[in-house]
Design a protein around this nucleic acid. Structure first.
Lengths: 150, 150
DNA sequence: CGACAATATATGACACGACATGCAATTGCA
DNA sequence: TGCAATTGCATGTCGTGTCATATATTGTCG
C-alpha cells in the first residue's frame, strides 16, 4: 500500500476510533462530541452568531449548525436570541447549565489529552502538526483550527 | 492550545476536508466514499461475508455494513447470496459493473494520492504513520488497516 | 433428541454531515 | 425611494455511523 493511501486511511481510522472513545467518555455527561465542541467554543468565544460559530467549528455543518444548536437549546445548554441590530442573525450564548456542562466536558477532554500524550510520547508531534497545517491551508476547517489554536 | 488538543482537531479537520474532497471527486462516478471503500476492498478480497467485509473496512459500520451493502446491491455493483454451507451468513461479490466501478474509483484515488504526495513532500510521513500505528494498536480500525496495508 | 447458548445478519432509533432550496431581513445602488 | 442582490438562517433530503434490539440459523451439551 502506498504511503499516501495508508496516510488517508490512518487519518480516517484515528478519527473514527477517537470519536468512538469520546462518545463513550461523554455519554455520562449527556452530550455528543459535536455538541461538546459547540459548548467549548461558546465558553471561550461567546457571544457568537450562528455563522460565527460555524466558522470556528471543525465539525462545521455546511450552511450552518442550526440543528446542532437546536438540540442544545432544547436541552437548556445554550440560549438563542434574535439580534436587535440585525433581525436576520441570532445571538448564541451559554446558559449557566451550559457553562457547568463545559467544565465537565473539559475534564473529559483533559483525560483524553493525557491518553494522547502518553501514546505520542517521544514522537515528533510538532512535525505532524506542521504537516497538517500545510494540508489544511486555505480550507474552512484549517482556518477554524488556526484561529482556535491562537 | 495544547499539542494533543491541536492534534485531535487536526485529525478531525483532515478527515473532514479529505472526505469532502473525495465526495466531489467521486460524484461523477456515482458512489460515496464509504461505498467506494467497499468496492475497492471487495475487488481485492472477494468473496467475503458481511462480517468479513466489516473487519476489513476502516469505516466499519458497527454490527455490520448491511445497509451499506444494500445500496450497492440496489445499484447493481455487488451480488449478495446466502451461503450454501451456513444459511446465516451471506456471500458478497462484485458484479462486472462493480468491477468497472472499481477501476474508475482507482483512478480517482490515484489522483488524490498524488495531491497528498505533493502536499506532504519533504514531510515525515513515515513518522506520522508510525504514530498512527501506535495509537491504533488493538482497535478494530487499526487491525483492518494493518491487514490491508499488508 | 431437545433446550440453550452462540453466531450472522437485519432493523429501528437517533444524531450527525453534506448538499440544495427557501425565506425573511438588510444592503446597495440607480 | 424602490427594487434587485446579498446575507443569515431554517429546512428537506440522503447517506452514513453508532448503539440497541430482533430474528434466524447453527453449534453444544445434557
Amino acid at each position: 500500500m502506498k504511503a499516501s493511501e495508508e496516510l488517508r486511511y490512518a487519518i480516517l481510522a484515528l478519527q473514527r476510533e477517537g470519536n468512538r472513545a469520546l462518545i463513550g467518555a461523554l455519554k455520562p455527561i449527556g452530550v455528543t462530541p459535536a455538541q461538546a465542541e459547540v459548548i467549548r467554543v461558546l465558553d471561550q468565544y461567546e457571544p457568537l452568531t450562528l455563522a460565527g460559530l460555524g466558522d470556528l467549528l471543525i465539525c462545521e455543518s455546511g450552511t450552518g449548525p442550526s440543528r446542532l444548536v437546536d438540540r442544545l437549546v432544547a436541552q437548556g445548554a445554550v440560549l438563542r436570541t434574535v439580534s436587535a441590530t440585525d433581525r436576520r442573525s441570532v445571538t448564541i450564548m451559554l446558559t449557566p447549565s451550559g457553562r457547568e456542562l463545559s467544565r465537565a466536558i473539559a475534564g473529559v477532554e483533559n483525560a483524553l489529552y493525557e491518553t494522547i500524550d502518553a501514546a505520542a510520547a517521544g514522537q515528533p508531534v510538532e512535525a505532524l502538526l506542521a504537516l497538517a497545517r500545510i494540508m489544511l491551508a486555505g480550507t474552512p476547517a484549517g482556518t477554524a483550527l488556526a484561529q482556535r489554536a491562537g
